[in-house]
Design a protein around this nucleic acid. Structure first.
Lengths: 200, 200
DNA sequence: CAATTAAGGTACTTCTCGTACCTTATCCTT
DNA sequence: AAGGATAAGGTACGAGAAGTACCTTAATTG
């Protein structure tokens, strides 16, 4: 009757799978240890032996839901930047984005958790944007001084701010265009260099 | 024995005062309805007749703790900007800033609460920065095109991002300087105008 | 085969929000 | 001044989850 008792990795996977399902169905707020245990066909002890608390489990499950993507390479900085912002916009306004926000809220300022959220990590974001910018510099579209994490990530930071301030709904595309044209591009073409084509 | 029973405004003030004390002593996490009621010498009913839930009470109490300040006017845009960032830096890394972050976390994306937090409201921040920038434009230190909420608030948004990403500790002054010199000033002197003195 | 390690099963403690319901004081109107 | 209307006080309780304790039982390992 009782199928063979799972342990180790097999059980861990079952728990994570259950957590992922709960997370997608009910969000982090609905992720309860009892439900995960029940869904995984085990009990809370097995969970607490692996993760110290609910948040840690939630973060672990969330990470399974996201996959790294390649930076765009359209040959035009403006298009690359817009594409990155549009991706972020879609993600943040999707159900997954809602979960991400819940997790960030639950983490409060606990950097040990925040660092595990890919969209949250400065390094991940900086790397992506520096890649795109680096190509633009090579093409002569941006000044080499712009190859600086603080400068490179300006656009995505501004977009994230939109979500923090305005809440969930998708930012209109005009906002993204404005961020790129009013802030990002003027900034990376820095200091009167003025060599690129004034696109649009 | 029983002093005269308070009602209306008097009782409301007593509750808010108690909430403020709990908030400063124990943070939002430690703000329980029972403790507030007890401290105010009343009971939870009186609270729930006035605020729909704990978060609303927390936000109301927090607002009593903050006071609006005047934008600086040193006669130099760079100094004004740094001063604004330093103020924000102090606030965010103070106990009050910790409470603010707790409240924002508890609010999740609920804009109806977020809008009530002064440091959070786009309007408040934009107004302050536009004032400072407006004076700089009048002085010829910044381009008139910079008088745009998205551009004007870039610096403070970047600083807030530091707190989101790095957590509570005070940002080093170099970060503020970097934000101002690498992002804010180049941006507002926009499009190769290049008339100001390159301060520092 | 024995010893050790990890799972399963259950029950429980603790917290705290939010409600329900009744009694009692204060206010306001006639 | 009386008598309703309104708001406070008191108390208890339901509900939801987190995290813990402790014991039994199966799988692994030597």
């Amino acid at each position: 009757m009782t199928q063979t008792r799972r342990r180790g990795a097999a059980l861990e996977e079952a728990i994570l799978r259950a957590a992922v399902e709960e997370l997608t169905e009910s969000g982090y707020a609905g992720l309860t240890m009892d439900k995960v245990a029940q869904r995984a066909g085990t009990n809370k002890n097995a969970i607490y032996r692996r993760w110290p608390n609910r948040l840690a489990l939630g973060v672990a499950a969330y990470r399974l839901l996201t996959t790294a993507v390649q930076p765009p390479d359209t040959g035009d900085l403006r298009e690359d930047a817009l594409e990155l912002l549009r991706r972020a916009n879609r993600h943040w306004s999707s159900p997954l984005g809602a979960i991400l926000r819940e997790l960030m809220a639950a983490a409060g300022g606990a950097t040990e958790f925040l660092a595990q959220l890919p969209e949250q990590s400065t390094d991940t974001m900086a790397a992506t944007w520096l890649t795109v910018l680096g190509r633009a510099v090579a093409r002569g579209e941006a000044a080499p001084e712009a190859l600086h994490p603080r400068v490179a990530t300006v656009a995505i930071v501004l977009l994230r701010n939109e979500f923090v301030v305005r809440g969930a709904p998708t930012a209109p595309d005009e906002v993204l265009v404005e961020i790129v044209d009013e802030v990002f591009l003027p900034l990376v073409r820095q200091r009167g260099i003025d060599r690129g084509t004034p696109s649009l």
